[in-house]
Design a protein around this nucleic acid. Sequence first.
DNA 1: GATTGGATTGACTCGTCAGTCAACCGGGAC
DNA 2: GTCCCGGTTGACTGACGAGTCAATCCAATC
Lengths: 210, 210
Amino acid sequence: MASTRQHPNGVDKRRLILDAAVRVFAQQGFHACRVSDVADEAGVAYGLVYHYFDSKEEILNTLFTERWQIMLDAIVDIDRQEVPARDKLYMVASFIIDSYRYDPNLMKVIIVEVTRAANSFGRQHLEKIREAYQLIAGIVESARVDGSFKSDISSDFAAMCFYGAIEQLLSGWIFDLMPQQDEDFERAKGLVVETICGGLEAPSASAPVS
Amino acid sequence: MASTRQHPNGVDKRRLILDAAVRVFAQQGFHACRVSDVADEAGVAYGLVYHYFDSKEEILNTLFTERWQIMLDAIVDIDRQEVPARDKLYMVASFIIDSYRYDPNLMKVIIVEVTRAANSFGRQHLEKIREAYQLIAGIVESARVDGSFKSDISSDFAAMCFYGAIEQLLSGWIFDLMPQQDEDFERAKGLVVETICGGLEAPSASAPVS
DNA sequence: GATTGGATTGACTCGTCAGTCAACCGGGAC
DNA sequence: GTCCCGGTTGACTGACGAGTCAATCCAATC
């Protein structure tokens, strides 16, 4: 693989290929598209793709790893703040949802081709994916310790539910099963946290008796 | 496609092929495996697969459609009962989790290769998948109407969260990220409902003030 | 025991692509 | 001007695997 040095003319072909790949993978799917589609979309010769990447998979690898690490770092940052767990979870949800809003194609590729394809391609990234669950679990765990979250729901379990709910929402948007205006995204951030932290049941319905 | 009539010797080769496909698809993945793998696993000649099915995809189609319809019917049945929404959701969660427990390979194939592969293969089944969301949303909606569930969380939204959480749990089991003893499955049923309906927050923490 | 027709076989075809490679280009160094 | 070298090109190869098909088998029927 060549270095990422960019040419005097100011065009970084490697980046060009990665960006083109996002569009092509998102539209046609990783398996369905041909490497030549990516090259064409990037306005670059077929062979150049293999100058910068060892294989078709390595392109997807790169896209995933780049973006996922940014998310992991963001969650770590969020967890450092001195705010209630619920606020932290809101920030996590915000970050993920905004990631989709900012670059839906990239998030679509990451979720559809990696995160939710753990059987084929995602397998080699299971550990990184797991890290995200564990970071979320960490947020929940400290709330369990300080008593603000129920102790009978394990933090690992809670993390899976929380992350699963968010990913399902993204899937809903990706496949046009849910409306995606700006307001929908904003509302979703609050609602997913309200659902997971506060629950669906009306407060009055079954008054908590502890 | 030939009929499903079974031979005098009592062996239904079509069924044999379907069952073999479940194992092969689960182990290798739909894309990664070859039709000859399925034929070999079934102990049947390559060509016979094409006697019973038009294509490799049709096998997967059949597996999905068969099983998904059973689930849809089950949810309809559950919804008919005169019990609180929370109990209905518990029954839905139970059904799905038990489906996995009873035949993990089949559920793995359905989730990994269809439900979570909506970009490639699952696309043609989006409507059927959506039906499940809508049935769940129906359960939530009636609880919203009778006041037992919060009215500010739309039932569509709630359904996505609920289903997403369950699917994430199954994924966790499928990829060995979570323990899967009998007790784990049983506990999960209650916990996922408790999480989504009751929320993660401890009752005392933020006393409901309406 | 001849006939019929569906079940079964597996070698073969044929299109598709990922990945290769030899040639070409163009800017910088001297 | 010429040498060098990384960037760039795209025609080509080689493997692979889905789907075809002509041949064979076998149970039932007359």
